[in-house]
Computed example of a mutant assay.
Amino acid sequence: MSIELRHAAACYQSADGEVEAVRDVSFAVTEGAFVSLVGPSGCGKSTLLSAIAGLEPLSGGSIRIDGQPVEGTSPKVGFMPQRDQLFEWRNIWDNVTLGLTVRGEKDAAAYAHVSELLERYGLAAFAKKKPCQLSGGMRQRCALIRTLATQPEILLLDEPFSALDYQTRLAVSADIWRILRQEGKTALLVTHDIAEAVSMSDRVIVLSRRPAVVKAELDMGALRPLPPMERRDTPEFHRYFNTIWKELDVHA
C-alpha cells in the first residue's frame, strides 16, 4: 500500500495560541518502501504521522492511502507511538494480543504468529508477567509486537526504538528491517537518529524547522539492498549521514 501527502499543513493549540507546525509538506511512499522522516525537534514529524494514521486532522492539504483519502483510522495501518502504552493490569500476552481481541479475531494462526514474535524478541518467558516487571526496552519490544500482531500493511513508527539500549536498538532495528522486507510492508519511520534513518531506509526525507516544509529527499541508492549493520560499514553511509547532518543545520 502507498502513502501520498499533498501540501499537508497542520496546526495545534498551545497556551500562547495556535502554532503552525507544518506548512507545506508533499511526499510519497511507494508500496513496500521504507522511508524515514528526520527534522529538528518540534517541526511536526509526529503530527504528520498521527495525521496519516487518521488520529488527527490536517488544517490543509491531503493524505491518501492507496489513492483513497484518509478519513479516520484503518486496520490496514499500524501505528507505534513513542510510549509503549501497555496496560499495567493486563499481562504481556493480553497486551500484545489486544488488537486481535478488539477485532474479535479467533484465527489460531494469528495467535501463533504472536507467539512466534514473542519468541523472536526474547519475551516468550514473560508472557504471563505484568508490564511493571519488565525493563523499558522489553516494554517497547512488547509494544512493537502488539503493532505487528494484527499484520498491518502499513507501519507508522514514531521513534519506536528510542527506549532501547544501544545494542538492543541495533538488533531490533535490523530485525524489523528484515521483517518488513520479507513481508513487503510499507513503512514510515520518524526518528531523530540520523544513523538509524540511513541504515534502515530506502529514502530519507529531511524537514525544515517549524513550520515544516520538505528541505531535502535523499535516495539511499546502492545501500538499499544492504542490511542495517552492513550499511554502517560503508563509505556511502557516512556520506549520507554527513549530508543529512548539514541539511538539518543543527547549529543554526
Results as ranks from 00 to 15, higher is better:
84 D>H: 01
84 D>C: 00
84 D>M: 00
85 Q>S: 02
85 Q>P: 00
86 L>I: 08
86 L>D: 04
87 F>S: 04
89 W>G: 06
91 N>P: 10
91 N>T: 11
91 N>E: 10
91 N>I: 06
92 I>Q: 01
92 I>F: 01
93 W>P: 04
94 D>N: 14
94 D>L: 05
96 V>L: 10
97 T>R: 05
97 T>I: 06
99 G>H: 06
100 L>Q: 12
100 L>K: 11
101 T>C: 07
102 V>T: 09
103 R>N: 12
105 E>W: 03
105 E>Q: 10
106 K>S: 09
106 K>H: 11
107 D>N: 15
108 A>R: 15
109 A>K: 13
109 A>W: 02
110 A>S: 14
111 Y>A: 06
112 A>P: 04
112 A>K: 10
113 H>Q: 08
114 V>P: 08
114 V>C: 04
114 V>H: 12
114 V>S: 11
115 S>L: 02
115 S>F: 00
115 S>K: 06
116 E>P: 00
116 E>Q: 11
117 L>K: 07
117 L>D: 08
117 L>N: 07
117 L>A: 04
118 L>R: 03
118 L>I: 09
119 E>T: 08
120 R>A: 12
122 G>H: 13
122 G>W: 13
122 G>Q: 11
123 L>F: 04
123 L>I: 04
123 L>W: 03
124 A>M: 06
